[in-house]
Design a protein around this nucleic acid. Structure first.
Length: 476
RNA sequence: GGUCCCAUCGUCUAAUGGUUAGGACACCACCCUUUCACGGUGGCGAUACGAGUUCGAAUCUCGUUGGGAUCACCA
């Protein structure tokens, strides 16, 4: 049987990290087995529907190259792929389930149902409507009385099923409540729609958060009543913000698009989240999506929750940035240069310097702000033990440097460095005694991306000389 | 509260009865070096606790503790 997995998000807002990870595992299970990855939109709750949310789902999956084989936009043989368009199908199956004894009509109002249960005393909802003879219930339905269809739980004893990650799970049937399958507005609940759809779409592996572990027996009951086989279950642990709280968009935790906006590369994010709850069994940590397809197995999925560690993602993002072809980095950095700079600088040189140093693209503007304007600084900055400089040495050294630089025509890093090194030798100074003052003079900063000569190249001859003149004036 | 699930360095994790408990991030030190960064070397740092089983337990069993999930006409 062909492996078929599905990513079934509800369009309620941004794509959060846990969601994306689930999608990734679904995708990898399918692709590792030459199977199909299906996108299904679960929009049965009109109240929670957020305009534009579906587009975010499409855009995100496309951005990380997780292409789906069937979905609302491209169709397929098992459509429609949007649940709101499958309303008639659920109604048909819901009524069929009633006939089969797996569900019943319920005429209670929501508040009546709430009164029936008592969480303190642990009394599950025992629907009085289940006692209504089917013929009578049907008459009331036909007469136009509002109703819902509730699951009927008759079985006694333990429900057992196997989970690919958690192993064998046993839950007492008494723990299962008779939840609503078809709402009074005619829409199904997730509890029903996912079963019908997964069966009809021939889904072989269901991947979802482990919060579904305890409700899975209810779904199995429905599969059983219909005489359907249930899919393989792959419940995955939560992605946490800290030990107590899971990552959630409601708390304003970073979503995929937030991270991208901050300058994290989609490939790096995907790589990082793949490793949150899964490991390859080797020391390799950097994986492209294609590599993941080759090595991914559900057996190496973890049971315990994982805390999302932005620090490690940041490191990994740095690895991806450094591995970028130069042209690609240069292109990606452009918007950030425009944010920070109005002056003309040698952007090629700037990119060369920055690619080795930047971990998150969003850090660029702050790192290069000094190129636009030299910040206020104190002459104390020239005092550096290791470089053996102080304000006096700096002043003299800058005066000499200024003379030499004014004559340089080949304004390249190699040439500038060779020139200043020669100058140091000629003056009997350490390299640092020439170079360190230049960095302070052109940047006003103790530490900068790139050294004195690199910064000079970035700034260009005219601006470099101007800044050195300013510095000499400031030292006088 | 009932039920279910989870538990190795601060974090992500490896080790499916026998290892000095391994790696990565972070942190610290040193090296490289025109600062920073990159890179390199080293260091710090964990089997939640208690009983068993066993020649031998991070690993198996039970208990304790801690955490999470679930108990919606949300998914």
């Amino acid at each position: 049987m062909k492996t078929r997995t599905r990513f079934a998000p509800s369009p309620t807002g941004y794509m959060h990290i846990g969601n994306l990870r689930t999608a990734l595992y679904e995708y990898l299970i399918a692709k590792a087995n030459n199977g199909d990855f299906i996108l299904r939109i679960e929009d049965t709750d009109q109240k929670r529907y957020v305009e534009g949310a579906t587009d975010i789902i499409y855009a995100t999956l496309k951005r990380v190259c997780m292409n789906w084989d069937e979905g609302p936009d491209i169709g397929g043989n098992y459509g429609p792929y949007v649940q709101s368009e499958r309303k008639a199908i659920y109604a048909e199956y819901a009524h069929k389930l009633v006939e089969l004894g797996g569900a019943h009509y319920c005429f209670c109002s929501k508040s009546e149902a709430d009164e029936e249960k008592n969480e303190e005393l642990n009394i599950k909802f025992k629907d009085p409507c289940r006692m209504i003879p089917l013929e009578e219930a049907k008459k009331r339905v036909a007469a136009g009385e509002p109703y819902v269809i509730r699951q009927t739980v008759n079985k006694k004893g333990k429900s057992k099923y196997h989970d690919e990650v958690y192993g064998d799970i046993e839950i007492d049937y008494d723990e299962l409540d008779e939840g609503v399958l078809l709402k009074s507005d005619g829409f199904p609940t997730y509890n029903f729609a996912n079963v019908v759809d997964d069966h009809l779409m021939e889904i072989t592996h269901v991947v979802r958060g482990n919060e579904y572990i305890s409700s899975t027996p209810k779904y199995n009951l429905i599969y059983e009543t219909f005489g359907w086989e249930h899919p393989h279950y792959v419940h995955v642990p939560q992605v946490m913000k800290d030990a107590q709280h899971k990552l959630s968009k409601r708390n304003g935790d970073a979503s995929f698009q937030d991270l991208v906006a901050k300058g994290y590369l989609p490939e790096a994010i995907l790589n990082y989240i793949a490793l949150l709850g899964w490991n390859p069994g080797t020391d390799q940590e950097i994986f492209s999506l294609d590599e993941l397809k080759k090595v991914f197995t559900v057996e190496r999925l973890n049971k315990s929750p994982a805390i999302f560690d932005i620090t490690k993602l940041t490191w990994m993002n740095g690895c991806y940035i450094r591995a970028l072809p130069f042209e690609e980095f240069h292109k990606l950095a452009q918007p950030y240069y425009k944010q920070a700079l109005t002056r003309q600088v040698n952007e090629e040189e700037l990119s060369r310097v920055l690619q080795q140093r930047v971990e998150v693209l969003g850090d660029i503007p702050a790192q290069i702000a000094f190129l636009e304007n030299v910040p206020e600084y104190s002459n104390e900055l020239y005092v550096n033990k290791k470089m053996k400089t102080d304000a006096e040495i700096a002043k003299n050294s800058l005066i000499e440097t200024r003379k030499v630089l004014a004559e340089v025509s080949d304004w390249s890093n190699d040439n500038l460095f060779a020139t200043l090194k020669a100058l140091a030798e000629k003056l009997g100074l350490k390299n640092g005694q020439i170079l360190y003052p230049v960095r302070i003079a052109v940047s006003g900063l103790e530490t900068t991306p790139g050294g004195a000569t690199e910064l000079s190249v970035v700034l260009g001859k005219e601006e470099t000389l101007r800044r050195i003149d300013e510095a000499i004036k400031k030292l006088s």
